[in-house]
Structure formats: C-alpha cells, structure tokens
Simulated assay, not measured.
Amino acid sequence: MSKPVPVNRALPGLPPAYGLAAYDSLGSTNDEAKRLARDEGAAHGTLVWALRQTEGRGRRGRPWISPEGNLYASLVLRPGCTPASAAQLSFVTAGALADTLQPLLPEGICQCKWPNDVLLDDRKAAGILLESETDDAGNIEWLVVGVGINVQHYPQESEFPATSLRNEGGRLDEPGPVLVRFVQAFSTWYDVWKEEGFTPVREGWLQLARGIGGPIAVRLADRTLNGIFADLDEDGALLLDLDTGERRRITAGDVFFPGLVPSGSGEGT
C-alpha cells in the first residue's frame, strides 16, 4: 500500500514547535501519525491534519463519522514518561479543547465530560483518542493524541446528544483556524503538565467538568453503576459514591447524566 502524500497547506499562527503534515484525505489521522512516529521517527510536535477521514474511529474502535468541514488532527508526542503518566494527557487535551471552543461561543457553556469528551451545552462537540507505544524499558516511546471537533457538522442520531460549532453560532466555523487555536491552547496546557505535573491540570479540568457533585450513570463493560460523581483521584480516575456508601474508583467507562439519554443507535461524532 502506498504512503499517503501530504499537500502544501499553511496554517498561519501555528506555534513554530509544531510541524504540519496536511492531507486532503486519510483513513485515520491517528494511524498516519502512528506510522510517522514508528516508521519515520517523527519528531515531538508533528501535527497530522486531514480534511476528511474514511476510517475515523473513537474510543474502543467506535466509528467516527468524518465528513469534510469538521476537524480531524493528531499530534505526535514524545513525553518521555510512564504509561500511567501519559494517560493524564487526555485531561491536558480536554482542557485545551475547552479553552479553544469556549471563546468561540456567543452563548453557551463548554464543559469536559469524563474521560475524554467536550460538551457544548450538554451536547458532544469534540472527542479525544490517545494511542501509544512503549520502549524496551516500558516507558512511552511515542504517544499520539487524536482530536475530532464538530466544526460544521454533527450526527443527528448518536449515542450521546451532539452538536457543532456552526450549530451553536460559533464565531469560527472553518477547521483550519480552529486547529491553530487548539494547538496554541494545547501547548500551554502541555507545558504546565511537563513543568508542574498533573495537580494543576487536574484542578483546571475539575473547574471545567460536567457533573461533579451530581448524579451520573457509568456504563462499564458488564454493568452500569449509578451514583454521585465525587471527584477525580490523583491519577485521573473517576471516584463514584454509590448509594450503599461505597466509593468506587473507575478508570474506564462511559458517563451519562440524568435526562441526557442515548438518542439513537449511531456511534461516534
């Protein structure tokens, strides 16, 4: 299979530490970023951007509907940390997405939904997918942060209610300028994480979080748990207080809120 061919596309305002690899179409920006990291030694800060994806995916392999007009991008990072620490980059990315989208909204509130979605007025507008590879010592060799933002389009039927920047009257509705703003925000959050650790990232994410202190349902692989979203622990796991008085630590699951039930059979955004 032939390698994807980048196109010449500028992104004015992109921080100089990030090198752009732009494409008209890819199967998946994450797959291309992983190929560049694994096979070509792509540097930290390599940014893969495609106008559309033909095989986009979200968490747990769910399809990510990817028409032209939305944002699909993946960053190659070489953080030099353990896999447990690298998982914190989901919260770094979510905070950066919220800082990207909130200033673009004439009205409405942007919030983070555990573990890796961003909501505009309780409707999903962006998602995150982290994938990585370790070295012989078990540390992160490279990590790819994939983001998808509903800029112009959103699915009418989805597992969680969805929306787009355009639908919310966003001040920008073109993927390129939105991507520049995201990378600028990500650079700030990433630098804080590298220099100060997870504590300030956790505190910033909690200020943006949807559902803290209130009732939620957490769907696990084999059951659904109902309780109060009490907190994040020091590693970013969700702490759920059950009616029995037990506190459960949850590292993976899908969160739903009362009154916001699945509205259709579609997957992805």
Rank of each mutant, 00 (worst) to 15 (best):
F91L: 15
A162E: 06
A87W: 08
E157G: 01
G58S: 11
T54W: 02
K124G: 11
G56P: 02
A125K: 09
P106G: 01
D135W: 01
S85I: 08
R60Y: 14
A96P: 04
P63N: 01
D136Q: 14
A50K: 11
Q152C: 13
R35S: 03
P175A: 05
G170F: 00
A50R: 05
V48F: 10
I109C: 15
S85R: 14
L104Q: 01
Q111Y: 08
T100V: 10
P161F: 03
P115D: 12
E40D: 15
R60Q: 15
P106S: 04
G138Q: 10
A98P: 12
S132M: 00
N167R: 15
A94K: 02
R35T: 00
D122F: 03
D31W: 03
P67M: 11
T100S: 01
P103I: 05
R78G: 06
E68C: 00
L89Q: 03
D39L: 14
E131G: 02
S158K: 05
D135N: 14
Q53Y: 13
T134K: 07
I65K: 15
C81F: 07
A125S: 15
R60F: 15
G41K: 03
A86Q: 10
T93Q: 10
D39V: 11
H153K: 12
R52K: 14
L143A: 06
G58A: 10
G80D: 08
V145C: 05
D135Q: 09
Q152S: 08
T82P: 12
K124N: 13
S85C: 04
A50V: 10
R52E: 15
A33D: 07
T134L: 13
E174T: 10
T134S: 13
V92R: 10
